[in-house]
Structure formats: structure tokens, C-alpha cells
Design a protein around this nucleic acid. Structure first.
Length: 270
DNA sequence: GTGTCATGCGTAT
DNA sequence: TACGCCTGACACG
């Protein structure tokens, strides 16, 4: 259940084990058998994340492209390696480490130009924090009349946000989710970008999404926050806002729920 | 056991 | 807007 921080974390942790190493590749499930056979025995050069996509670049120019979708999962394993689950799409191993991939939406072999196509469809990635990121986000939001709540999930606007960060960032910036993207106030797109940069980097380091300021809930350290007290809005329907005590509410945008505080994020009449 | 939902996204209608 | 894909956790009977 991954947002962008999960993929960057995977790239970092797997890269530490596998970059520059010759790998065994197999697809116990069989659905990536050809691709696995193709890279089996090749040296992995780098693992790169962009938004919610992951790219494994091998010495002969082959690239494995992975997108976890809603259900995909990586597991890192060390010897003695457990029996792969029946749905293991891909195993990459050295003698001392193995990554086990199950349930991805995408696991495919690409050539370099196809990699460019995928990346070309993505907006700036907050974890990579390009200097012009805030500008690009602002320029793309100003052209859209769709709700900001929808725009934030559009990977062309900004690559790597998912449904948890969407509700959290809108809460933290005080923006009602149904505000048309083009009607954001001066500075708000930049504030959303800066928040994304800070929060996704925190998420990448800790491996979880915790947005709440520890002081706000009377906790000493960020690492003491849990799933139960670490979020402001996401999935808190009917619970009290941590700031104003109003009740968190929710609605559907394009088939996905968004949660917000009606007081902290007032509807804007335009 | 069955049904529903979920941190996602592409394609068809 | 609906459906398909991929899987696991949880609620319900």
C-alpha cells in the first residue's frame, strides 16, 4: 500500500544490497518468467525510484520496471531464504540477500526509451526535490479547474502522492479538498510542494506516514506517534479534529475518499 | 465462508 | 463512470 516514499525507501535499501552485484532472477509465479530469464546472471547497476515507480537498470541495458499498485509488496530476506510464496512475481538474489516481490500492478522489462516514456508522464518528485519543483506544480495547478483534491493525486502534477498524503497535506495547509486547483491563493501551491518535500523525506526515512506534530498531541518524539495518533485527517471520519475539535468529514472524489476538517479547511465560495 | 474495502492506475464506455 | 487487475485484512453471519 505504497505512496512515493515507499518506493524511494525500497530503492535505497535494496540498492545498498544489490547495486553492482550479479543477481539471480526468477519468477516462481511464472508471470515474469521471460523477463527474469533475461536479467538472470546480469550485474545490477542501479535501482532508481521516481514517483511510485521503480527501475532496476542492468548492465546490458535491460530495465525492470515495477509499480506496486494498491497491493504490491517487497520483502527483504536473508538466508536461510524462506520458500517463496506462490504469488512471488520476482525474486532477485545474491548469496546473502533476496528481495521478494508479490502482487505488483506492473513488473515488466523495458528498454531505455520506454523508461523515458514512463518518466515523461510524471511530474516533479518531492523526494528528489528538483529546484524548479514548486514552480512546475504551481504552473500545472493554475491551468486546472478540477478540485485540488483530485489534482494532488494526478501523477503528472506531482509524482508520488497517494490518498493518505493528499488528505494530510490539505489539512496542514488549510485547503478545502473541493477548492478548484486554479483558485488556490498566492503561495499555496508552493506551500503544498514544500510540505510534500518535507513529509515524503520523513516518510522515506521512517518507512511510515506520520504527519502530526508530536507536540500537538502531547508526545515527546515523532517516533512515538502511532497510526492511531499520527495523522490529522486520513480515515478519521467522525472523529474530533486534533486542532479545533470539530468533526472530521469525508467525501468521494473520483471514486476515492478524502477526509477534512470543515473548520480548519473551510469551503471557499468563489 | 463470503463480502467489502484498501496508501493505484489503465482502459473501455 | 465502470471495470479489470493485483492481494490481504477485517467485518459479518
Amino acid at each position: 500500500m505504497p505512496e512515493g516514499h515507499v518506493l524511494h525507501r525500497a530503492a535505497r535499501l535494496q540498492g545498498k544490497r544489490f547495486n553492482g552485484k550479479r543477481l539471480w532472477a526468477e519468477s516462481p509465479q511464472g508471470r515474469f518468467a521471460d523477463g527474469a530469464a533475461r536479467v538472470d546472471g546480469q550485474v545490477l547497476e542501479t535501482i532508481e525510484a521516481r514517483g511510485k515507480h521503480l527501475f532496476y537498470r542492468f548492465e546490458q541495458g535491460d530495465v525492470i520496471h515495477v509499480h506496486l499498485g494498491l497491493f504490491g509488496k517487497f520483502q527483504m530476506q536473508t538466508p536461510p531464504f524462506p520458500e517463496p510464496s506462490a504469488n512471488a512475481r520476482l525474486l532477485l538474489s545474491t548469496e546473502s540477500d533476496r528481495v521478494h516481490l508479490a502482487g505488483p500492478t506492473t513488473c515488466a522489462l523495458l528498454g531505455p526509451s520506454e523508461v523515458d516514456d514512463v518518466m515523461g508522464r510524471l511530474g516533479p518528485d518531492p523526494i528528489l526535490a528538483p529546484r524548479d519543483g514548486a514552480d512546475r506544480v504551481a504552473k500545472s495547478l493554475v491551468r486546472r479547474s478540477i478540485p485540488i483534491g483530485a489534482a494532488l493525486l494526478d501523477q503528472k502534477v506531482l509524482a508520488g502522492l497517494g490518498n493518505v498524503y493528499r488528505s494530510e497535506f490539505l489539512f496542514m495547509t488549510g485547503i478545502h479538498p473541493f477548492t478548484p486547483a486554479k483558485e488556490l491563493a498566492e503561495g499555496e501551491p508552493e506551500a503544498l510542494w514544500d510540505l510534500a518535500v518535507a513529509q515524503l523525506k520523513l516518510g522515506e526515512r521512517s518507512g511510515r506516514i506520520v504527519t502530526v506534530d508530536p507536540a500537538e498531541v502531547g508526545v515527546a518524539k515523532r517516533s512515538d506517534l502511532t497510526r492511531a495518533n499520527g495523522l490529522y485527517a486520513y480515515k478519521r471520519q467522525g472523529e474530533r479534529c486534533r486542532r479545533c475539535d470539530d468533526l472530521i468529514t469525508s467525501a468521494d472524489i473520483d471514486g476515492r475518499n478524502v477526509w477534512w476538517c470543515p473548520t480548519c479547511q473551510p469551503e471557499r465560495s468563489g
